[in-house]
Structure formats: C-alpha cells, structure tokens
Write a protein that binds this DNA or RNA. Sequence first.
DNA 1: AGTATATATCAAGGTATCTTGATGTATTGT
DNA 2: ACAATACATCAAGATACCTTGATATATACT
Lengths: 102, 102
Amino acid sequence: MENFLQTIGALNDETRLKILRFIDKNGAVCVCDIESAFGMIQSRISRHLKILKDAGFLTVERKGRWAYYAIRSPLDRFRQDILKEISYLDMDLPEFKGCCKP
Amino acid sequence: MENFLQTIGALNDETRLKILRFIDKNGAVCVCDIESAFGMIQSRISRHLKILKDAGFLTVERKGRWAYYAIRSPLDRFRQDILKEISYLDMDLPEFKGCCKP
DNA sequence: AGTATATATCAAGGTATCTTGATGTATTGT
DNA sequence: ACAATACATCAAGATACCTTGATATATACT
C-alpha cells in the first residue's frame, strides 16, 4: 500500500514523467544531460531523480564525478506497463545532446 | 498527458484507493454506503468519488435520491491493470453493510 | 594543495491538495 | 406544502509537495 502510493506519487508530476520517458528513450544519462536538455536547474533535476529512484523506476551508477541514471532492470510488470503507457503519451520531450564526456 | 496525470492524481490518495477497491469488490454502492462503512463525513466521500469518476474509474447512476457509483464499464486496459494491482495491495478495507433501502 | 566540475541536500516561499463544516439542490414521504 | 433524506459544492484552515537558491560533498585536473 505504502509502496504503491510511493510509486504513484512519483508519477504524479509532469516533469518526472518527462524525465522518466527521456531516460527510457535515451538510455543511461547523467544529471547534467537532463539538466541541459530540460533547461532546469540542477537541484530540481536531482530531486526528481531521487524520487523516481526511490519509487523503483531508476538505478544510479556512479562513474567518476558523474552519476548515470537508467531504467531499473529488471522491472516488475506493473512498472513496465506504466512505462509503456507513458511512451504512448503525447508530450514534447527535449532532444538529447550529451553534455559531458565520460 | 493531462489525462494521464489526472488518472494518476486520482490514485494518489490512500482514501481513494480504498474507496476504489471497496467498489471494485462490492459492486455498485451509494454514497451513504461508503460513508457508513468508512466512517467519514459525506462531503469528503462525495469529493473523492467525483475525483475517481472524473479520472475515468467510476460511473454514477442516479436512482431516486441515491447515487450509485460503480466501476466504469468497459474499462481500458491500463485502468484494469491498475485495479488488479490495487486488488493485490495489503489494505484493511471496511466491511460493506447496506445502509439504505432502494 | 588549490580550483573546477558534478551531484546531493537543505531551508524558505509558493502552490496545490485534503479535510471539515456550512449551504444548496433534488427527491421522497406525510 | 412541509419536513426529511441523499448528495453536491463551497470556503477556510491544515498539510503536503514543488521550485529556487545556497551550501555541502566528492571527484578530477593542474
């Protein structure tokens, strides 16, 4: 119940839906990739990523000074259904342009 | 997108999840049924029902002075998945006891 | 060591959402 | 017509969430 509400709560924000779709579409990205693609300040992106991670949608892997966020794998059926549903949504997603060299 | 957020927003509340599950489990019920089962005041229940209805989960049918809320039928696949997921949740649901004679 | 970069976290203000109590509307019963 | 019942809606206060700007931490570079 609590877990479900956390999952739903993570989806209850337009910015997070876009970030989630962005990562689902582009694969592992670092925070500054999202920051520059979305044109939002870093603390805001970082917070949303944490919420999505805590809700079980994302994983982080730290490499050097970068933190790469990716869709968690394996993902349970329900979250997969949600990702698919989000992929159908009509949203304008910013274009991905790698901002940092790993 | 907007529609999706409305659907998610409707689920983002413990009381609404319980009401939704309650109706899913017990079939069409009137507002006072829920009111007496949940021990919540009428305006609160009424508001939550409206949100669930506007989000596409419920329908209302008025009979005399009662308003019967039921799971919308047909229900799209995504909302069906959600209802199923909610049915798995560990929540303590109040018992149904018809409070009004139709 | 010192500086710059990438990310996380915190505090404060703004905004949305939930709850309650009061009021409005429609239907039934007398 | 009047009273009672079932439900919807509104206003106000409480609570939770989002955004921003500042600060903290950790890694890389020179």
